[in-house]
């Protein structure tokens, strides 16, 4: 992949659910290869909607979506998109529907027309890469929350995507799984957009963090998450600091 190629380009995209207020208003956004973008924004600001528009699960009311340099509109345009972009759902129970882990991970490759033994090989390799060796025959609904999240990621990575869209990947994970997931994401040679509420998760896994406001992504205002350490007398008592005049 050549660094700097535009992978996803949204121009003036608007969307609203029937009978509701507009969720996205005239949104512009682009993702270049090599980018690891974090989006942090309150609930209901349209982050998940944005992902669903990119994947073609929802259609914009107006605006233009270009993916890998092609203007995508029809359901058939998105077949290619879905092969090259992987979406990790917020709820792993939505993503894992096969009885066993191996079948679920092999589902994507099989849909891409891979022969059975190759699909199984890819599935095993992906599971091993995520440290999930020995999970092949586990029953998907009997996995723990953290295991479900990692297996979901495996089902997405098994399709060998070029871009990942991650919807709250760190949510509800225990500290160990969370740390493992951060390590995995940092080690991936992929561009991705990551939605999260958790400041530390997002700063550990992305290079640029934006916020959403009034149905737009504020690319003009890059957020920098930071903290200050300072000391003064009676600092252990609860207190507030005034912003500079």
């Amino acid at each position: 992949m050549i660094a700097g190629t535009t992978l996803i380009n949204l121009k003036g995209v608007s969307f609203g659910y029937p009978g509701g207020p507009p969720v996205l208003r005239n949104l512009d956004f682009s993702l270049n290869s090599g980018d690891r973008v974090g989006i942090i924004a309150p609930n209901g600001s349209g982050k998940t909607t944005l992902f669903h528009l990119i994947m073609g699960l929802l259609k914009p009311l107006s605006g233009r979506i270009e993916i890998f340099g092609r203007h995508v509109r029809e359901e058939s345009d998105f077949t290619e998109v879905r092969r090259r972009i992987g979406l990790l759902f917020q709820d792993a129970d939505d993503q894992l529907f096969s009885p066993t882990v191996l079948e679920d991970v092999a589902f994507g490759p099989l849909n891409l027309g891979k022969p059975k033994d190759e699909a199984i090989a890819i599935a095993r390799r992906t599971l091993a890469f995520l440290g999930l060796d020995g999970f092949e025959d586990r029953i998907t609904f009997k996995l723990s929350g953290g295991e479900k999240r990692l297996v979901s990621l495996a089902t997405v990575l098994a399709m060998e995507p070029e871009v990942l869209l991650l919807d709250e990947p760190g949510n509800g994970l225990d500290i160990r799984t969370r740390a493992a997931l951060i390590e995995i994401l940092r080690g991936l040679d992929l561009s991705y957009i990551l939605i999260s509420h958790e400041l530390d998760f997002i700063t550990a896994t992305t290079d640029t963090v934006y916020t959403m406001q009034n149905g737009k992504i504020r690319t003009d205002q890059e957020l920098s998450v930071h903290q200050h350490v300072h000391a003064h007398p009676i600092g252990s008592c609860p207190h507030e600091h005034c912003p500079p005049e």
């Binding site: 699960l57 879905r82 979406l87 759902f89 939505d94 529907f97 994507g108 891409l112 089902t155 399709m159």
Partner: peptide
């Protein structure tokens, strides 16, 4: 939707 995203 999740299945569609995986090329179902």
């Amino acid at each position: 939707q999740a299945m569609l995203c995986r090329g179902f």
